[in-house]
């Protein structure tokens, strides 16, 4: 673009709008490495003491166990979502299944449908299934809530693979399964990767489901851990420590996002173009 039209008021407005975000994230970073005198805004000394929680479980409780739980949670979620979506997405995109139309519309409605409204029903299902208060239950619920989205995204990626390639495979004598595994799956690798990343990040950030569906269990994910640490009514409450914990908790997500920004962009847009 050539001329910059009366740019400064616009940029000013943009800056003012962005200010809260900027301040929050800036101080998130700064405060974890510094101390600030009470009532003051600017830090006055550099310190690493807020990161001691990593090695000293007496400050906020052991952080590594929740971390491990969170990794297990996110990884299983990722595996379930990716494997089911990869197969179901293909089946829905390419195979002449009975009730295909019906299933497709169902998935689409579920995709658009706000699944949190189901939480009460899900809670009762888990109670009946005896999976209440268990990690397995939470993983299953979270995975199922993500599946319509995942299947939908994968279907989009499969739809974009030319039919001719699939026909050529069939023509070359390969069974549909072989065609899927050896020819089509490599074509949707970018989609699989994006979905895997998204599932992992989403699982990593999940707070509500573990909190509601497994409130009194003996496992704790990082989000719950962080919320306990940051409760203003708790005795260990300290802005700087919860920020360190928060940053520690968020770093993997941020790292993944920075590394794969372009891949994730499409999916963060709700997969509407997928």
């Amino acid at each position: 673009m050539t001329r910059n039209f009366a740019a400064w008021p616009i940029i000013l407005l943009l800056t003012v709008l962005s200010l809260p975000l900027f301040i929050m994230y800036l101080f998130l970073l700064v405060d974890t490495f510094s101390n600030t005198a009470p009532g003051s805004l600017l830090p006055n000394e550099f310190t690493l003491e807020h990161w001691r929680f990593l090695i000293d479980p007496t400050i906020t409780g052991d952080v590594w166990k929740p971390t491990l739980t969170t990794v297990i949670f996110s990884a299983s979620l990722m595996i379930i979502v990716v494997s089911v979506s990869a197969t179901a997405g293909y089946a829905l995109s390419r195979l002449a299944l009975p009730f295909r139309r019906f299933v497709l519309s169902g998935i689409m409605v579920m995709h658009a449908f706000p699944s949190v409204t189901l939480i009460i029903g899900v809670f009762l299902v888990l109670q009946f299934a005896g999976l209440y208060n268990s990690l397995t239950g939470v993983i299953l619920v979270k995975a199922s809530l993500m599946l319509p989205f995942g299947i939908w995204i994968m279907k989009g990626f499969y739809d974009a693979v030319p039919w001719e390639i699939e026909m050529a495979g069939v023509q070359d004598g390969a069974s549909r399964f072989t065609v899927w595994r050896r020819i089509i799956l490599p074509q949707v690798k970018p989609g699989l990767l994006s979905l895997a990343l998204f599932a992992f990040i989403d699982g990593w950030s999940e707070y509500m489901l573990p909190r509601i569906l497994a409130p009194s269990s003996d496992f704790e994910v990082l989000s719950m851990y962080l919320n306990t640490v940051s409760d203003p009514n708790s005795s260990t409450y300290n802005f700087n420590i919860f920020k360190s914990v928060g940053l520690f908790y968020t770093l993997p997500v941020l790292a993944l996002f920075v590394l794969f920004q372009n891949r994730l962009m499409n999916i963060f847009g709700g997969g509407t173009k997928g």
Binding site: L14, Y25, G246, V253
Partner: peptide
Amino acid sequence: FFSVLWLLPRITPVVLYAVMWKWF
């Protein structure tokens, strides 16, 4: 810069995002 800044709330885990607002 601005698009990444505005994307942060979306990728920040909701708990952290909420406590940041609390701090704010």
